[in-house]
């Protein structure tokens, strides 16, 4: 296995507020890693560090190649904006370049192939702004992956999706991870949708992180240590519930 990105002992502070505190974890090839934590735990800051938009006050970030495919959390596109799904995916090839680029058959084929592999071929010519949340996610994944990056970073892709579309997106990402040998770092505030597909979890609380397999990390003693507060992990009919407080009784 080769490491695609590794964070070691990363600290980030904004003013006097420590947002990340000694965060270490890595993502390997063909590995689906879930970044779990409540709102405000520091997930977006970790992404900014991984994307190279923010350099940490302390610690190191090692990359296998600079190129990272990124799916931002919220993309608001007006329904009548003249931008088709295929236009957005084509911008994933070289959208950052200045200069004139003539359309070519090879580019078109590459875009079509990418749209096909995320299951977006049927709405390739629809306006992005008119697509449903799940459909937009597929197009954004195609946009992020068409340049063949070794790492895909997704910021809360399930936040605005219904349960069914959420599961479909997770399944799609899991399939792409194995098929393409992709490293995936996907954030969510609830891990249950990810449990069947996640290889490893990075659990984030108040700027600190623990990483490992779900069996290693999502345990009462590990999370209590992370939160520095008594926390219980409960299994309710296969759904993991994390609750805090002394008054929780576990049979």
């Amino acid at each position: 296995m080769s490491t695609v990105v590794r964070l070691e002992d990363v600290d980030v502070s904004f003013g006097t507020r420590r947002v990340l505190d000694g965060v270490s974890f890595s993502v390997e090839r063909a590995e689906f890693v879930g970044l779990i934590g409540a709102n405000g735990a520091g997930k977006t800051t970790i992404f900014r560090v991984v994307l190279g938009l923010l350099s940490p006050d302390r610690g190191s970030v090692a990359h296998l190649g600079r190129h990272v495919g990124y799916v931002p959390q919220k993309v608001v596109i007006e329904p009548d904006a003249p931008l088709r799904a295929r236009d957005l995916v084509a911008l994933g090839i070289d959208g950052e370049r200045f200069g004139v680029r003539m359309p070519s058959r090879a580019r078109r084929a590459r875009v079509d192939e990418m749209l096909e592999s995320v299951g977006a071929a049927e709405f390739a010519d629809a306006r992005v702004g008119t697509l449903s949340g799940g459909e937009q996610q597929r197009v954004l994944i195609a946009h992020a992956l068409v340049g063949n990056p070794p790492l895909l970073v997704m910021d809360e892709p399930l936040a605005n999706l219904d349960i069914k579309s959420g599961h479909e997106i997770v399944e799609l990402v899991a399939r792409l991870t194995k098929e393409r040998g992709l490293a995936v770092l996907l954030s969510a505030h609830d891990m249950n949708a990810l449990l069947p597909h996640m290889d490893r979890v990075v659990y984030l609380a108040e700027g600190r992180a623990v990483s490992g397999t779900t069996g290693e990390v999502v345990r009462s003693d590990v999370l209590s240590e992370l939160y520095r507060y008594p926390v219980r992990v409960l299994d309710v009919d296969g759904t993991v519930v994390v609750v805090g407080g002394h008054d929780v009784q576990v049979r």
Partner: peptide
């Protein structure tokens, strides 16, 4: 389309 996606591409 997205300032964030653009920033991630440098």
């Amino acid at each position: 389309v997205s300032a964030e996606a653009a920033a991630a591409r440098g």
